[in-house]
Design a protein around this nucleic acid. Structure first.
Lengths: 245, 245
DNA sequence: CGAAGGATTGATTAGTCTCAACGCAAGTGG
DNA sequence: CCACTTGCGTTGAGACTAATCAATCCTTCG
């Protein structure tokens, strides 16, 4: 069974009332034009004219911007079931890039198809607005994270978010989940240097909060980690259960 | 003439093809429920159930988040003609606050009215999507600004954005525009301390790039400031003329 | 005239970066 | 099957950006 497909529709359905018919439409749209890509490749690069909305079926994707001199900011993470930039067609060109962190499978939904989807069901249109607003909300939280918190707090917060979101998608097992980001990726996501991420991670581990080895994130002390990162999941706007205590 | 009204519709119309009838609808919607507020007051606070979309008619508004311990991150600035969070109704509660920086006049558009607007004209619906996507784009640029640039670059970038946006709305006169942010506000917007903002501003002034006094921003060397902030206006997605050289 | 908010300055410290080297594991080619 | 490469993680020393603390000044306004 193509697990990724269902994830996408299920995830939208879980937070909003979608009918089985709506789900079917979404699943179909996300199965018609599926592509695969190896790790560390670009799906879209800044400046491209936007031609399709992307749905991640398998693997992880990072949204990022690159400055002239090479500095890179990871803006957000897309995990299986996520949809990127609803309705991008409205814009003339992409203002950022999408790159795979792992091998990925993703669906491209073109403009015509996208519009068919939204006009077919007001519930779907609403669900897509919802996912867009959640995305902005997360972006705002990241701005706050980077702007106001120190390295220790920042990483704690980011790891909380990663685990929480993975868990909501059913991608977490017990107290751990995949986390394919290298320390350099974590650095680009938090506005720190890889070296400092390394030391801060050691600090978090030393405090018995998390373990992160071999692309696997293990939450040792959920409450402690949340407190350290001042993580309150409201900004994710979902109805998922809290991190198991 | 209620200048602010026209700004709102004009601004949407300037980037997308709206008919005179569309503009009329927008102007009406933004004139039906108008409120006023003094400076430094909240329009909406985090946790509120969202009940209306806001259109800024006069004055400046800041979107912000506050952490428990008092730290505050300004997430974005709303200037006259801006519309905040299209379609917020989709969410259960606000994940951030809106506060006035100056005395403001703004319109509230309730859910029913908002929906009437979008179903009345597909062009309006598109324009509102557009403004939402531009907002996210700006938010991403801010994340990058705070995450990757140093104090000098960050402030240069922010001041560029402020002037550029003011100019696009016809709110700039020659080489200067209003900038009602205090140095503390600038600090909260850039993730710096007020003290450091002060010194960095002196540095920028010393380099002959900008002057900022008495709530007035004067761009002395546009090219130089853009270069210093690595400011490329593509992310604003508008068709406005470049900063006068 | 006094109060209050904002801007400015100085001295010191803390947090994070930079540079550079080394270790380890997995993958590759001979 | 071993030598080499490559990517990622780790460590140390030192430099520098930005934060902190605290005082003073200026302007506006009641």
């Amino acid at each position: 069974m193509p697990f990724g497909h269902c994830l996408f529709a299920e995830h939208l359905a879980s937070c909003l009332a979608l009918t089985p018919g709506d789900c079917k439409l979404l699943e179909d749209a996300a199965s018609r034009n599926v592509k695969s890509l190896g790790p560390r490749r670009d799906l879209v690069v800044e400046g491209d004219p936007p031609d399709s909305v992307k749905v991640v079926l398998e693997g992880w994707v990072a949204r990022y911007k690159q400055l002239r001199d090479g500095r890179r900011q990871i803006l957000s993470l897309l995990i299986p079931g996520d949809i990127s930039d609803s309705n991008v067609f409205v814009l003339d060109r992409m203002d950022h890039s999408l790159g795979s962190l792992t091998p990925v499978r993703y669906a491209e939904i073109g403009q015509a198809e996208y519009e068919a989807l939204t006009s077919a069901s007001p519930r779907i249109a609403k669900a897509l607005w919802w996912s867009e607003l959640v995305e902005v909300s997360i972006q705002r939280e990241w701005t706050t994270n980077i702007g106001q918190r120190n390295a220790y707090e920042r990483l704690a917060h980011l790891l909380c978010e990663i685990f929480w979101r993975a868990q909501e998608r059913g991608l977490a097992y017990d107290d751990s989940c995949d986390c394919p980001l290298t320390q350099t990726d974590l650095a680009d996501a938090t506005g720190l240097t890889p070296v400092h991420v390394n030391r801060t991670l050691q600090h978090l581990r030393g405090d018995g909060l998390v373990e992160l080895r071999a692309r696997r994130l293990k939450i040792v002390d959920p409450k402690g980690l949340q407190a350290a990162g001042m993580f309150t999941p409201g900004y994710l706007h979902n109805a998922a259960p809290p991190i198991a205590a």
